[in-house]
Design a protein around this nucleic acid. Structure first.
Length: 582
RNA sequence: CGGGAUGUAGCGCAGCUUGGCUAGCGCGCCUGCCUUGGGAGCAGGAGGCCGGGGGUUCGAAUCCCUCCAUCCCGACCA
């Protein structure tokens, strides 16, 4: 194990803990990492990782390396500064937008800081891999990446500079890619388990990177930016990003008699809620009509009144580059009415996309495309006809699982990793080929697999903390145990503490000795704040009986341990906390 | 990028409305005494281009203009 057998005296360590939380920090991981002396800001979204944080990062990296290597991955290093030509070749120089950090050298040539490394690795492999005999190839790197975020925030959770692991797979064909993908999927499960995190792989949207299959690995935490839904049934295992979760059509088309279409006056009823209370009609009986504009057209999207539109799904269906809700001017031009009175009946000049649930509705209510008026008893076929019928709504907790029908639950997650099947997107754009057994050129079939290393560290803090500070999982804790003499002037206490510290370090436990001339309370507070999994307290009471206290940070449990048993006791406690490095 | 806010000592803040002596408070830091099981006490001390620039004024932390930085809320992502 990389860091085995290390120890440090707290008086010699750079651990600048604070008594108060800097005002700029909002989320708990940011607050605690600052307060506990792990990080300091250099610029918005750019941080110094102080010694404790760097140790955590190295431990996470080490776990990643072991799991990547186990699957046949080979680590390499690639440049952070990359020439624009490569990005022009893949087409991303123009597509990537302002998030790409761009710079010029002294000759005026364009470069960028790598936000990801598909271009450069594809070029590398293109140059040096010529034969199918050299495949599959799994290459990875762990290094700084850059993204000029519109709004860096949440400390390490969304920085502009961050440490990331990316593995790129190169395969002969789709079947090979499936194998590589599965290897990485397994590796990721191992990695996040070994980091001691509570996480879940979820079906995800592939976004701008394209490609078909993709999973995100989510660390479950209240502060997570993503919403995931998952099946309550343990055997089923269905879990998806809310963006991607499939909706089950619950209604059925019944044989209720179709009534006569009527237009009614509905003054100031602009929302479903207004209308429901005005007409005394349930939202499930209404059709919500939302107008969206893309770079090429305006479309109307229909969902049941109690549902919400999933813009990601709509975006994917339309195959557009930009999707925005239509402004008041567009709404007026298309419907002839102000916002809030749109409906599919007699709606001209726009495509209508309807959620399947809408197709089951009879005698529904919708906007009349006229100020202060709605239509009642509108019916599919007679009154309107959608151009596209497909799932475009947001799935909520409580709905049936698309896989097994059990109930879906909701949770918040922090995305710490994602696995992608890229296919030939980059190899095609950059003409990266190899020769197959028939001497024919074939495109590499690629996959990419990322883990946000610094984000994973922050996610661990989000998941494991209390009001006193961080509670590191033993596997990624900067040190395992803090040895703490209560009274630094008491030579017996201090000598005993130092002796325990030396024994621990000698046996491979990572320990610190809090030798500072501080009062006990200060040391306790700092130890809790920094989050060492274990604490050994050497004080009068225990020593009189030849004992010291061993406290577990996570549970607060304390037990008295005889001096000659303390090293063994620490080891078995670490084992109990899931640490396997001893 | 749109909306909102904030920049005063290492951290947290007051002072600004209504311009006026040497710019304050708490914590931290340094020295000494004292204390020693959950961020002790007393005494002394160091530390400020009041975000930058420009203006108004006899006089600006305070009023005006401008730039910069930082944070929060929305749309994108590991």
């Amino acid at each position: 194990m990389l860091l085995e057998g290390t120890g440090m005296k707290v008086s010699e360590m750079l651990v600048p803990t604070l008594r108060e939380i800097p005002a700029e920090a909002e989320v708990v991981s940011h607050q605690l990492l600052l307060k506990a002396g792990f990080i300091r800001k250099a610029a918005a979204g750019v941080y110094n990782l102080l010694p404790l944080a760097w140790r955590v990062v190295k431990k996470i990296e080490q776990i990643i390396r072991e799991e990547m290597d186990r699957q046949g991955g080979q680590e390499l290093m690639m440049p952070i500064v990359q020439p624009a030509e490569l990005w022009r070749e893949s087409g991303r120089w123009d597509v990537y937008g302002p998030e790409l950090f761009r710079l010029k050298d002294r000759h005026g040539r364009d470069f960028c800081l790598g936000p990801t490394h598909e271009e450069i690795i594809t070029t590398l492999v293109k140059g040096d891999i010529n034969s199918y005999k050299q495949l599959p190839l799994l290459l990875y790197q762990i290094q700084n990446k850059y993204r000029d975020e519109r709004r860096p925030r949440f400390g390490l959770l969304r920085g502009r500079e961050f440490i990331m692991k990316d593995l790129y797979s190169f395969d002969y064909d789709q079947d090979g890619l499936d194998v590589s993908y599965n290897k990485m999927y397994e590796a990721y499960n191992n990695i996040f388990s070994r980091c001691g995190l509570d996480f879940r792989p979820v079906v995800a949207d592939s976004g701008a990177i394209g490609g078909k299959d993709t999973h995100e690995f989510m660390v479950l935490a209240e502060s997570g930016e993503a919403t995931i839904v998952y099946c309550e049934g343990k055997e089923c295992g269905y879990a998806a990003n809310e963006e991607r979760a499939e909706a089950v059509v619950t209604g059925v088309k019944d044989d209720t008699p179709v009534l006569e279409l009527k237009k009614i006056h509905t003054p100031d009823c602009r929302t479903i809620a207004d209308l429901a209370s005005f007409l005394k009609v349930a939202p499930e009986r209404m059709i919500k009509t939302m107008l969206y504009t893309t770079e090429k057209e305006t479309v109307a999207a229909l969902v049941r009144g109690d549902r919400e539109i999933n813009e990601i799904k709509l975006y994917n269906i339309l195959g557009c580059v930009k999707l925005d809700m239509a402004g008041p001017a567009t709404v007026l031009a298309v419907t002839g009415a102000q916002t809030g009175f749109a409906g599919p009946v007699q709606l001209k000049g726009v495509r209508i996309v309807a959620d399947p649930e809408v197709m089951t509705m009879t005698n529904a209510v919708c906007g009349a495309n006229e100020d202060d008026h709605h239509l009642v008893n509108i019916n599919l076929g007679r009154d309107f006809e959608p151009d596209i019928v497909t799932d475009i709504r947001l799935v909520k907790s409580g709905e049936p699982c698309p896989n097994c029908g059990n109930k879906l639950l909701e949770a918040r997650g922090i995305e710490v990793g994602q696995v992608f099947k890229l296919g030939d997107k980059y190899s095609k754009a950059m003409n990266a080929t190899f020769l197959d057994e028939n001497g024919q050129a074939r495109l590499f079939i690629m996959g990419c697999y990322g883990i946000g290393v610094t984000r994973t560290m922050a996610a661990a803090v989000e998941q494991y903390h209390d009001e006193r500070g961080i509670i590191w999982p033993a596997q990624i804790a900067p040190y395992h145990v803090a040895v703490l003499p209560v009274n630094h002037k008491d030579e017996h206490q201090f000598g005993t503490a130092e002796s325990i510290y030396r024994q621990l370090v000698a046996t491979g436990v990572e320990a610190v000795l809090d030798d500072r001339p501080e009062r006990a309370g200060v040391k306790f507070k700092d130890a809790d704040l920094v989050g060492y999994p274990l604490r050994i307290t050497v004080g009068d009471k225990g020593l009189a009986a030849g004992q010291v206290e061993l406290t577990t940070r996570q549970t607060g449990d304390m037990k008295m341990v005889p001096l000659d048993k303390i090293v063994d006791e620490v080891k078995s406690s670490l084992l109990g906390l899931g640490y396997t490095g001893l």
